[in-house]
Design a binder for these strands. Structure first.
Lengths: 169, 169
DNA sequence: CGAGATGGGACAGTCATGTTGACATATCTT
DNA sequence: AAGATATGTCAACATGACTGTCCCATCTCG
């Protein structure tokens, strides 16, 4: 390791002039490393099961919104239907996801997890949750509110509804 | 869109019982979508230049720590040297990155950006900065401090020094 | 009712970026 | 002098994106 060292990482407060380049870079870097760290635990489980992150994302959102239509999942993931198609076929082939025909629009295919799918998703969620809960606890409630606020600010206004909606009944 | 709608996304405060599943899921989702949103602008520039995110990450860290050794970059990116090797060869082939021999350890290859490399990195950074600065401004200084604190909490303690060190002279 | 739009699916080919494993060379450390 | 370390390279492979094209079922609207 050649990078010069310094004292143990204090959690510095944002300065009043917080738009300086260094504070922007700090945000970029923490977002990158924080995201990587959150994902890491789940990756190990996925590797054992022979799946990848693409499968995880699909499982996650189907678990979050049972009965989600394929098109809605496509918009959440922001990938092409060909890419999603492969992933869904694999998940269905392994009996983790099942489809039903839409009630109001019979062209739609509504997605939900089977029991096996729900079990895998639960194991994956438990990994993410462990890291998140520890970080929330360490940082405190006020910090969590700020964490959410900055992340919402990063999302283009027209996409915010899509994300916010996930948490609603 | 089939997902049920709700009123315009308020930035809710974290509840006292903030370890509930829904608040964990909110963090996971905002982290995912926030990270995706931050990256998006830079991707467009990269596509025009014929590069990808791997090139961006290398450029970013070399810009951040000029004279960074290959091994240190490897540890930051957490990929294999074969993967990094391809990326660095491409960047050097396009005259964006140059190497020099380490001063204290002649086995090391120290990396820095050429003028052209610095120009590209600056354009990419400007994209990230625009989104970050807007989010910081919208959320406020206290929120930014909380944002950092939660993200630091997500990073395993043994990796925190590596990240914190980036910001130091 | 019929035309066109929409939701979903499939085939084929390509690209970016990661992985293992094996090996080579130069240099540092002991 | 021996072994560890820093770097580089060849080869083969996996994953998960992409584009382009075509298909069918179903809904919407004039």
């Amino acid at each position: 390791m050649t990078v010069p060292s310094r004292a143990p990482t204090p959690i510095a407060a944002a300065s009043p002039l917080f738009l300086r380049e260094d504070e922007i870079r700090r945000g970029i870097e923490l977002l990158y490393f924080g995201y990587s760290a959150m994902i890491r635990g789940a990756d190990a489980i996925l590797a054992r099961e022979g799946f990848g992150r693409a499968h995880h994302r699909a499982l996650y959102f189907i678990a979050r919104r049972p009965g989600l239509a394929v098109g809605d999942l496509l918009r959440l993931l922001a990938i092409t239907k060909q890419s999603l198609g492969r992933v869904l076929n694999e998940l269905q082939g392994h009996g983790l996801v099942e489809q039903s025909i839409g009630t109001t629009d019979r062209r739609q295919r509504l997605l939900r997890l089977t029991d096996a799918g729900a079990a895998l998703e639960a194991a994956l969620f438990a990994e993410l949750e462990a890291g998140m809960a520890a970080a929330y606890g360490e940082a405190g409630q006020t910090a969590v509110t700020g964490f959410w606020a900055v992340l919402v600010g990063l999302i283009p206004p027209e996409d915010r509804a899509l994300v916010g909606r996930l948490g609603q009944a």
